[in-house]
Design a protein around this nucleic acid. Sequence first.
DNA 1: TTAGCCGATACGGATTCCCGTAAAAATTAC
DNA 2: GTAATTTTTACGGGAATCCGTATCGGCTAA
Lengths: 221, 221
Amino acid sequence: MFEKVLIAEDHQSIKISVTQTLTNLGIEARDNYAYDCDNALQRLKKALQDNAPFELLITDLSFDDRAISIISSGKELIDAARALQPSLKIIVFSAESSASVIGKLFEEQGVNGYVKKGRSDTEELQKAVETIHKGKTFISPGLQQAVKAKNAHDFTPLDIAIITQLAKGMLQKNLPAYLQEQNLKPSGLSSVEKRLNHIRETLHISSNEQLVAFCKDKKII
Amino acid sequence: MFEKVLIAEDHQSIKISVTQTLTNLGIEARDNYAYDCDNALQRLKKALQDNAPFELLITDLSFDDRAISIISSGKELIDAARALQPSLKIIVFSAESSASVIGKLFEEQGVNGYVKKGRSDTEELQKAVETIHKGKTFISPGLQQAVKAKNAHDFTPLDIAIITQLAKGMLQKNLPAYLQEQNLKPSGLSSVEKRLNHIRETLHISSNEQLVAFCKDKKII
DNA sequence: TTAGCCGATACGGATTCCCGTAAAAATTAC
DNA sequence: GTAATTTTTACGGGAATCCGTATCGGCTAA
């Protein structure tokens, strides 16, 4: 079993339960807890320098950053941790259920496991640690299919840029200039209109306001 | 100290910590846990019928309702519980930090305490239980001022109805008919335009898309 | 009662958005 | 290299929104 596991979690109540789960697995829980991302990365670095690296990171996704921090989300922490120590195994332990978000964790960031906070999360977490120790990946039951099932519409980087700017108040007629600045193509106003129209149609959405609401709900923007 | 406390919480990891906190307070934690709102209300009813009512309810706000449930959010549970048993003390234990949401819990629903999940949430929860047992209210440190600080704009029920419909795809020209159906006044198209214009101005927002995004972020709609 | 005030509604011009069509450019096929 | 296809862009009419102004209707105070 793993011997050194780092917990990155800003909720004390959850940290206590996770620690208990690790103890049940026979993993020593001492000096292995960070309540923000900066501190978590620091500990990973220190352990690496001391030739006693962590083997597994269990991290949340959202941290409320009260202080000015360099890394303020689990997503960024994962990238930084992997860059620092490619061999590190990573379990995300979060309440996030958006297929879009979870899908990216596996596909773009290569996490080893995802446990959704829920009715049986401690058992699931325990199973996840065991499964990953055997070299396999783990995902909470029921989420597998949700992540595989593609959205009716796959949002491209262009789509996301367009909708993000709309949500920031940019008029759609000003989008071409912005998209050119960002080197995003196509940038013509007609193309923007066509793209938005296409998205609305496939999602059965009738206005830009509704589209912004949809993307906010699905955590796409 | 309280003798009967009910926990309504759908995350096992948190339930474990809350139970432990209650134990630390000398409160017996047996048969006092519900993982969804329907079940929680059922237990409150049963205990009342048996002449052994719960004295305190500790509840989360968000429950992911996998099954078809009558009550699916903590907000509704609170109303139902208060209707059933007005004397019941209620602590909300949630990660929600939106001033709008928390403010309403106290002002409209009269909860006795709010503990935000965070770095010291178990200590805070313990303190909350003690404080409320003395007949006072409790709110997590730092949130007090956030809740008191009013938003730049106070959203009226009319505002919320308008923006909600926009976010559902309704065209603004169709709003007058809808508002009349809902007996909301004023309902004239000019009034709707004027209202939206006023909101955008006070919040320094330039489009309806941005307004919808803002309200989604602040959990106003 | 009536003059004055204020909010709601009606109206109209300017702007923006929607959407279909056509031209232009880029890509692919042969 | 040229034709065919697709993608991007340009254009224009109609709809919806934005915003200023004016009218309507209820309310208050002298």
